[in-house]
Design a protein around this nucleic acid. Structure first.
Lengths: 207, 207
DNA sequence: GTGCGAATCTACACGCATGTAGTAATTGAC
DNA sequence: GTCAATTACTACATGCGTGTAGATTCGCAC
């Protein structure tokens, strides 16, 4: 209170070239998102979080939609990069059980390393609008496609397994693990999840 | 247009006792939800969908929050009833593989029979606010608990399986199947999903 | 058929977020 | 130091949803 100029003009925020300002706005938007969900992700809230007035946001992005689009681009890029890094190069054979474990491990590590990027992707942010859902789904489609490829090239041609459904299942499973890891890390640490996962895979041979 | 009284008073909607009106409002809300998502689930939209004016909604429920609460009560009850009907009575032993298949089959049938109830539960409606998320989660907690019980009483005491994580996994898996069934029924009919599921279970013995 | 209570409607005041037009301050170049 | 371009701010108009107070109509009981 003591710092306010009683009825004067607002103090100007530090100036930035447009590109930097855009990045700063996206960072602020991500913070708002994590704190309050999509329902409160408004131009006003982003401007306030950035420490700037609304016209700045309009000048930088033109509206909430282009801004969200840009935020999704950035997030999707980061998440997809991390996920696709775990997929072996096309056609290279791997030992399937071993790869399933390593890929899950790698993804859980990525999630732990950058939770703020992954929480939106895993559907842990309230109020996701259609645009967001579509983005996430498109990334998952890509991911499932790669998983299916790995399965096909490593299953032996006599396998009767429905590769597409199995790919859906594996991705859904790892997503659930990632959610558990982020939401209840004390009860479900990575090691526990991976051990259980290995146990389930091992059933294929035991019993 | 031809039916409008040029500048007259609005035609009164058919009157209803309070209880009926409440049910009608919930039905309308569910339709709005399925069509437009939570982001458009407003008092105005519900009133319009019902064919009455907003004060009627306020008289019946007092606001959007109590109304949503009531809608969730109804939906949760229906979904939980259907799901818990598939759980064998406590302590009764079952043949595990057989039960896993039958329970999945039963749940997918329930989903197909009443998709409008299940779409919100499966997270297929855009813009779900925290209240909704919490409700769904509490139902899932209950369900996972029962699944874990079944696993425990039928796994043989020498099993090293992490029952809680496996319960999480199974529920997540069936949820994914249900989503596929609702979103892309042509590509993923119930029979295909169940066959793939059986195939995955069968891996436990084959290979 | 006539009341009278219940159910519905109209009308107003408000809050909050959106966009935009015009103004003012900052900052780098000269 | 001065100027001009860039960046940020103020101020206004608007749309849409929320609540609520008070008037109006419906329809059952008698």
């Amino acid at each position: 209170m003591a710092n306010d100029q009683p009825a004067g003009r607002r103090r100007y925020a530090a100036r930035m070239p447009l590109d930097e300002r855009r990045e700063a706005l996206l960072d602020a938007a991500l913070r708002v998102l994590g704190r309050d969900g999509y329902g409160h992700l408004t131009i006003s809230a982003i401007a306030a979080e950035t420490g700037v007035t609304r016209p700045v946001v309009y000048d930088a992005y033109g509206g909430i939609d282009p801004l969200l689009h840009a935020l999704l681009d950035r997030t999707q890029q980061r998440a997809a990069d991390a996920a696709l890094a775990l997929i072996p190069a096309g056609g290279v054979p791997v030992e399937l059980d071993r790869w399933l474990l390593e890929a899950a491990d790698g993804l859980l590590q990525a999630v732990q390393a950058d939770p703020e990027t992954w929480r939106p992707v895993l559907g842990l942010i309230d109020g996701a609008p259609p645009l967001v859902r579509e983005r996430i789904e498109s990334t998952l489609v890509l991911l499932r496609g790669f998983v299916a490829d790995v399965l096909r090239t490593n299953l032996g041609p006599e396998s009767q397994l429905d590769v597409e459904v199995v790919a859906h299942s594996l991705v859904a499973l790892v997503q659930e693990f990632a959610r558990l890891l982020l939401v209840r890390p004390d009860e479900y640490p990575k090691e526990r999840l991976l051990a259980a996962y290995a146990g389930m895979l091992a059933l294929r041979r035991a019993t």
